[in-house]
């Protein structure tokens, strides 16, 4: 039977897929820079490809792209975009980051964008990073992005959590509601500190090349971290 966390995640993203797609049109510049530096011969896996906002530009640049997502509804949206863009070098798979159905040492690069922070339980997030290390060829590179814990919007929440007993949940866990187009659906997030992201990357056996904080919505504190890592 499918894992309870996977099932919950699948249901959540299926429910908000259309609404999410209408608000997530623009790719992130950090990710486009990474894609533009890949060779035209590259095989790339986009783990948690969502609505395909990075997968489509990647398919235009690289030889082959494999898109993995837990939500069937999001995959249907991507499939439509593949047809609209007349692309024949994309293969989609309905699966998850914690158990990637791709053979060892196969891809030259991985996109792991805004996905890991939606996985409950630290051991599962760590496993997803190990999976990325496993599917990457030697010296293959991945770009990983996660939301930052101490960004302006959630800073007060986590400062309060520091001062009270957090119980059961792992520190950094938070339910964030999707309230658009008449929907009101909670999504699991684990927001990262820079140190935690660095530690998890290291523990998964990946080499950290660089890590940058960016401010998309925050005025004072980083809201996202982008890490470039290398397999070994």
């Amino acid at each position: 039977m499918t894992n309870v966390y996977t099932k919950k995640s699948e249901d959540t993203w299926n429910a908000i897929a259309k609404s999410f797609d209408s608000t997530r049109r623009k790719p992130w510049i950090e990710c486009i820079d990474f894609i533009n530096n890949l060779s035209k011969e590259s095989l790339v896996a986009d783990i948690g490809c969502g609505n395909g906002r990075h997968l489509i530009p990647c398919a235009k640049q690289c030889k082959k792209v494999f898109g993995v997502d837990v939500s069937e509804e999001l995959l249907k949206i991507v499939q439509k975009k593949i047809t609209e863009n007349n692309l024949s070098n994309v293969e989609l798979m309905h699966s998850e980051a914690v158990n990637i159905p791709i053979k060892d040492n196969l891809v030259d690069a991985v996109l792991y964008i805004a996905t890991m922070h939606n996985i409950p339980q630290r051991y599962r997030r760590l496993k997803s990073l190990m999976e990325i290390n496993r599917i990457l060829k030697k010296d293959g590179e991945a770009i990983i992005s996660v939301w930052s814990r101490w960004q302006d919007k959630f800073r007060q929440h986590f400062i309060k959590k520091c001062l009270t007993n957090v119980n059961r949940k792992e520190f950094g866990d938070i339910d964030i509601y999707w309230r658009q187009h008449g929907l009101d659906i909670s999504r699991f997030y684990h927001l990262y500190s820079k140190r935690e992201l660095q530690n998890d990357i290291k523990q998964a056996g990946l080499d950290l090349i660089k890590i940058d904080g960016v401010k998309y919505f925050s005025k004072n504190y980083f809201d996202n971290y982008f890490a470039i890592v290398k397999s070994n």
Binding site: M1, T2, T6, V70, L92, M93, S95, E96, N99, P101
Partner: peptide, 9 residues
């Protein structure tokens, strides 16, 4: 519909 369902069983 052309997409393999490879979620763990």
């Amino acid at each position: 519909e052309g997409i393999p369902n490879l979620l763990p069983k």
